[in-house]
Design a protein around this nucleic acid. Structure first.
Lengths: 372, 372
DNA sequence: CGATGCGTGGAAAGGGCTTTCCCAGATTAG
DNA sequence: CTAATCTGGGAAAGCCCTTTCCACGCATCG
């Protein structure tokens, strides 16, 4: 059963069980890797003819020979070597998907949509998970270039570090110049097709809604300040408050990781800061909001009784938490699907597709009694 | 900037901007896809020498020529074609990861561990998401065989349908016979290396713990009856109850999808069944438990006051839900890491690595007053 | 000092496929 | 009835690499 490394191995000829068939197999019958040449030999036709039958459509082959080839393929359990095909045609069907953290529901939802549509479109998704903002994205784009992937999708916030973004942009440029398609789900900073979630607008609308509910003293769990998504959401929220003449002290904007623990710690910092407790806390994503809720519960504070909490994203898995979380819904899975569509359509020049967020008011921000 | 399809294109020779460098690029300078031959030409050495320099270690090359090649690589922005290399060497670095639903945190956690370790081991993960139990897994294994992937990891419950499992086993057999490594995270039904979560044992221990807390009238939200994982968890739970002489009516075992909605509906069915309401509901995974909690809340039933709820998996994102959910913890990310390790180590014969679950008691199953 | 050995370079033979080119036979047109 | 066009088949040239295999120059050695 061991693989013989080099050289030509003896064929076992006909009479092998077809692959994919359930059933008995003689142990100890070494099965060499079967190539198209083997199929051609077995069918008694030339390599070219065999190739034409396998790639139906390239040119017609007489039904007689075609049948012989088809049978040989089945008998031998032949399976085309896609790598070799890719080399020969210069075309691959791979689509690289680069996300910041596949275990984060934000990314896995987008990835799910992406995988589904791209697979339907005949592309094979390669999902890579890499920390945000680091050199990982650049490395992966470069790897995709080496793999001659047909396309690459960068999912997640761009970095606020302009040098890093420029380097990534250059690498992506090299990729597209080699004929690949590149799409980003995030911000339009790479000069490629972009799915642009309405982070600022959504946060702005949320701020308005919260003010309308009677909240006045806000705090923000702001996420990493190196990520444009976080920055945009905070800025949008501030703008929304300003539009209603509600002020937000910079001391009440606490940065932290885009994670549950990041939210927990930022919430701690706000509680520890002293002064009057805020009415309402805006966590720039749902996962951080969950951390904040945990922190508040640890202090015995009721939500929304003592303090209101809002998030962003409307993560599916968190739609049933208690108290139900006010948030801004992004159609994550659809965003992945849209990105895949962009990949599949060629376009002359970069398109930017905005995706609006929708404010979803739930119990975690019930109106402040006596005000709203 | 368009890709010229066939034929040999004129080289722009030296003086091109190195790829990967940030900075200016002349628009309209068409950059042909640069091959190793171009590098060799530019450096004035043979193809073989260039290859040897690029694959450092294969054989020594004099420093003088080596430097020339290195410079040519940089100047031209050369990037090896990994597909061609794979064809030439017969070795690829791809690892196929097949999960049931990447948007499900159970799978995305495992995938995260898998991706991390495999990338560190020099493998490129290809994540495919496909519905459980269907023909998707089989198709994907076959695709991985066509891609000449080095290994494939099947994550998720095996199907209870023995015919489907046999077919999959045959396809996996074809894959390993071609020299690939196959690993399963689930049940040991494919004759390959397996990470085996202690589903039955964990559920059994959980049952014991719940009985010890004073619960007596149980119901089970049982998951799909076509998946071995669900079946095992239910069977383990029943066995645990039996060990404590607590009976469970089959009418109280309701099947449903492994999703939030599946849990919600199964819970509905139990509430609608009439008769005495159960003390405690065991949902075979956390996601279903969340659905059950939502359903109970919709009826105004308090957890654990009116009814206790337990889940399985200890999904990270759900560790902060309220009330905190009693569950059986599986080290999901580690399971992914272990699977990747199995992939990386060759082994003579299939290994089966059991992973015990740990019962985590939280508030959702607080003791029944006056009994426990 | 001729016979070994080694270190280094290149030519060439793969690896498994697609696709161009060419050719013989079968149709059709004029 | 010949010329012009299809057809379907095969040989062979590519695709972009890696890895023999071979050749050459030079230091070693008895």
């Amino acid at each position: 059963m061991e693989l013989q490394p080099g050289g030509r191995r003896a064929r076992t000829g006909a009479g092998q069980a077809g692959a994919g068939q359930a059933g008995v197999r003689q142990a100890g019958a070494p099965l060499a890797r079967v190539t198209l040449q083997d199929v051609a030999d077995q069918a008694g036709v030339s390599l070219s003819t065999a190739s034409r039958v396998v790639n139906e459509g390239s040119r017609r082959v007489g039904p007689h020979l075609a049948d012989r080839v088809t049978k040989a393929v089945a008998d031998l359990g032949y399976m085309a070597n896609l790598q070799a095909r890719a080399v020969a045609t210069g075309q691959s069907t791979m689509m690289g998907v680069i996300v910041h953290d596949i275990a984060d529901p934000y990314f896995s939802s987008i990835a799910a949509g992406l995988i589904e549509v791209s697979h339907a479109g005949g592309l094979l998704a390669i999902v890579s998970s890499t920390a945000a903002g680091g050199a990982g994205e650049l490395e992966y784009v470069s790897l995709m270039r080496a793999q001659r992937a047909r396309s690459v999708v960068l999912v997640g916030s761009r970095s606020a570090d302009t040098a890093a973004t420029a380097a990534l942009r250059a690498e992506v440029g090299a990729f597209t110049r080699d004929g690949g398609r590149a799409v980003c789900v995030g911000q339009d900073l790479l000069g490629i097709d972009t799915i642009l979630p309405g982070n600022a607008e959504g946060a702005r609308a949320l701020a308005g809604a919260l003010v309308a509910l009677g909240h006045r003293e806000f705090a923000v769990l702001a996420g990493p300040d190196g990520l444009v998504t976080a920055v945009d959401r905070v800025a949008g929220f501030e703008a929304g408050l300003a539009a209603w003449s509600v002020s937000l002290s910079p001391r009440r904007v606490i940065h932290g990781a885009f994670t549950r623990d990041g939210g927990y710690q930022a919430m701690s910092a706000i509680l520890a800061a002293g002064g009057t407790r805020p009415d309402c806390v805006f966590a720039v994503n749902d996962v951080m909001a969950v951390g904040a809720l945990a922190r508040l519960r640890a202090d015995g504070l009721a939500v929304p009784g003592d303090i209101a909490v809002a998030g962003f994203d409307d993560i599916t898995t968190l739609r049933d938490i208690y108290p139900p979380l006010t948030t801004v819904r992004l159609p994550l899975k659809q965003m992945g699907e849209m990105a895949a569509s962009l990949v599949l359509q060629e376009a002359d020049q970069p398109r930017v597709i905005p995706v609006p967020g929708e404010v979803i008011l739930r119990d975690s921000t019930l109106p402040r009694p006596g005000r709203g």
